[in-house]
Design a protein around this nucleic acid. Structure first.
Lengths: 216, 216, 216, 216
DNA sequence: CATGAATGAGACTTCATTCAT
DNA sequence: GATGAATGAAGTCTCATTCAT
């Protein structure tokens, strides 16, 4: 009986994951509004009614799907922080891992756009159901940690420690921005080349003392 | 009679502008899909049918509205490039003008998100009806020009000339990214502070020779 | 001034005819409901409002167009009754003239279908505004006359005189029927061949005494 | 459980048939364009959305309804061919059965008109979705068979065999034509009387050798 | 006389959600 | 637990007609 229960639970979870997977695909392809519950049900090989056994609403399904996607993102990128590398290379590796996702997984940028759209249009969701905080904060913390490690290993300038989080925030904002711009200006520039160029000057900056602003 | 004709013509353009304005507002508020033509008609104080006298379809209306918004953006920011300032300050002024738009005009980020969403989900529109090329290219050109001017005035390092466009692309991607992240993480960081921080290190970088990548 | 008035009147009639012509074309192409007043206005190179200066409503326009078409039909076919031919050949010539219209003028069958449709769906129009009576009755009378002439010239059997109108009614019904079936079964049979075949046995019948029905 | 499943399945088919029935009624009454899906839904006592669970589009609904009507026509008329009757009477019975439909079922002529209209205005449908072929060919085959039987039973002249299909085509075209004309000239002539008159001379013709055309 | 901008009803169709089975 | 039939509101868009100019 334990087996049965266990099997059942697995089945149930498995089914939920299947729905989530299909939902993510369609939400990425068409956006939140244009993706239909019918289409998701069909793609997940379940009936429309079944969706509502596992999720309260389309909105709920969307956030569950996005949360699952975020989990995947986090686990994929966190693996990229190899402690054996030197700080600069660890940062590079981390950023490259993030960019990889934008390139290998066609969906990622689209999902990001869908998420931006949904939250921007329903600001109440930012406080009520913010599944992205984990992603943003997680990523910022990861970057910040690499920076601080670099400082303590004397690979980066001590002043960096003070501004580590600002740098992290900016770096991640840049990565999202360049990903979006890349898809909007397809073939106009090479994504990896641009990112590497940004990384070069960032790393250079990490090594030098910060210039004071009035210092002109 | 001249007056009559003139008034009429003004009326028609005025009406079209009014519809465009209402459309932009609703598209910003709800996104392309969720904004309804009925709602736009109501907001513009015209009947549903009237919309279709001026625009072929909802899609047409969307792109017309976005194009109008872009025109506004361009004219507002192009005025910010004061030739009297020194290069670094010109760059700062230009970026600040852009950020101003994100802050003063609540809609801008939302419209940007809506545009990203629409183009990402309908890639065919990128080639068929790309109203953003003007914006992106115009902004990149403006930044590039400021950089090149800075080089020729010896305010920036000569190597910058070679990479001016790369820098421009990255800067603008960053600005969009930080704008989006700001709205997603409201109150978590101060937008202007972050942008200034980015600008500081960017300007510092513009003045120094580029570090070679292997240079570690 | 007389010239002016006259020219003006001609202009007005000419314009009305142009609208009628365009209307007939579109009604034939799409049917009464699917043809739009806008489309007709465009095809007639006048504004939508102008149509309503000349016609009370779409329905009015339809019947005016059909009436004009009928006038054309009548004048085209009535010319076909050459008094020099022998009765049988006169009948053949008349029928061929009618069939010609179905073949040369792609529109005729379509207009007929549209007319049938409109009257069948609005039986009140049969009494209120029956523009087809003229066509039907005119054609029947023409056929009947040819038959009676044939009898009086002893080319047809005397009994035919008694049934001349029945024969005319049936002949014209057949012609409409075969025209419609021809367009529904395109390339399945040759229209002229079928009509000639029908004519052959009809003419044969006209020459013999009518068989009594019980005569088996 | 068997009962449940069975009842359910019956329900669904029944529901579809109910929609089809209502659709046929409204299409007959108003034609394809003027009949509205809303009206059909109301007449069928279902919601508008339900229609689209059973049919892909209004067009699909139309053709399904027409196909159902054709099935009814075929089954009603095929029963009319009694093998016990002599050939001439079998032909009479068959034709009378067809005419019966035009008289008893007020809709038939209207539906025929709607079908003609739709196919004439959308010739592509003739090849893409021709639901009438079955009706036309079936009726022609039935008539042809009666004629050939008549020949082999020596009730009709041997020459008829050669022209059997031509005769069938013409007879059916005539029947449609006289049906339409009857409704257009209501009370001007008696439908059955006209058809009988046509039948009389047709049957007479079937019994005699065909006259050669030049035979004047 | 001619225009064409404006209307608002109504067309077809899709959709998220519910509920009896 | 799972289904899928049913709903009705709402979507985009078209249309015949009117009226100020």
């Amino acid at each position: 009986m334990e087996a049965t229960v266990s099997r059942k639970r697995v089945d149930k979870q498995e089914r939920k994951r299947e729905i989530t997977r299909a939902a993510l695909e369609l939400f990425a392809e068409r956006g939140f509004e244009a993706a239909s519950v019918s289409g998701i049900a069909q793609a997940a090989n379940v009936s429309k009614g079944t969706i509502y056994l596992y999720f309260d609403s389309k909105e709920d399904l969307f956030f569950s799907a996005v949360a699952a996607w975020i989990d995947g993102m986090v686990s994929q990128t966190s693996g990229a922080i190899s402690p054996n590398l030197r700080p600069a290379e660890r940062l590079r590796a981390l950023v490259h891992a993030m960019v990889e996702l934008f390139i290998s997984d066609q969906h990622s940028v689209r999902i990001a756009a869908a998420v931006f759209q949904v939250y921007l249009c329903n600001p109440r969701l930012l406080s009520e159901r913010n599944v992205t905080r984990q992603l943003f904060q997680g990523a910022r913390d990861a970057v910040t940690q690499v920076l601080l490690d670099g400082v303590s290993q004397r690979a980066f300038h001590p002043d960096i420690a003070r501004n580590a989080e600002k740098i992290a925030i900016n770096l991640l904002a840049y990565l999202d921005g360049i990903g979006l711009h890349h898809y909007m200006s397809k073939d106009y520039f090479d994504l990896v080349e641009q990112v590497d160029f940004h990384l070069d000057s960032l790393i250079e900056h990490l090594r030098r003392p910060c210039a004071k602003r009035g210092d002109e």
